[in-house]
């Protein structure tokens, strides 16, 4: 229990014992969702046109274009910002629909694992295309 809790506090006795309150991070999730969404507008337009324009081309041409510096940097930005944005978004969906504690925590963990795996795999593939290892 906090020692600067006034005796006239509006907190319930159970609330005092649990000692949970505002996490002081209330707007961070909202703000990062907006921040990434603004960044994703030009990145998405570029990525969609790039990927579609490569459809039907042979492997050598695709590797050459994806591995070129400007395209690789743009694509890296797109996948990293996308992975963060979708991690934030899926977290909201899970919190809206999954109310039981254990499945909720399991799914939030799964969301983090999946989003990190997507980001890392895409980054690895793009770097491999660039450096030709």
């Amino acid at each position: 229990m906090s020692d600067h809790e006034p005796s006239s506090s509006m907190r319930t006795p159970m609330g005092r014992v649990r000692h949970l309150g505002a996490a002081h991070a209330g707007t961070k999730h909202f703000w990062h969702q907006r921040l990434t969404s603004v960044a994703l507008v030009p990145l998405t337009i570029g990525a969609v046109i790039l990927v579609l324009s490569l459809m039907g081309r042979n492997h050598a041409a695709v590797v050459q274009i994806l591995g070129s510096t400007a395209v690789a940097i743009g694509l890296l930005l797109f996948v990293l910002v996308s992975a963060y944005h979708m991690w934030l978004g899926m977290q909201v969906i899970i919190e809206d629909y999954v109310h039981d504690e254990l499945p909720k925590i399991a799914m939030l963990m799964g969301n983090t694992f999946f989003s990190c795996a997507v980001a890392l795999t895409a980054v690895f593939a793009i770097l491999k295309l660039s450096f030709g290892l």
């Binding site: 990927v51 695709v62 590797v63 994806l66 996948v79 795999t121 593939a125 793009i126 295309l129």
Partner: peptide, 10 residues
């Protein structure tokens, strides 16, 4: 799907 395409290209 995007990952499959990227990994395959790499």
């Amino acid at each position: 799907l995007l990952l499959w395409w990227l990994i395959a290209a790499a």
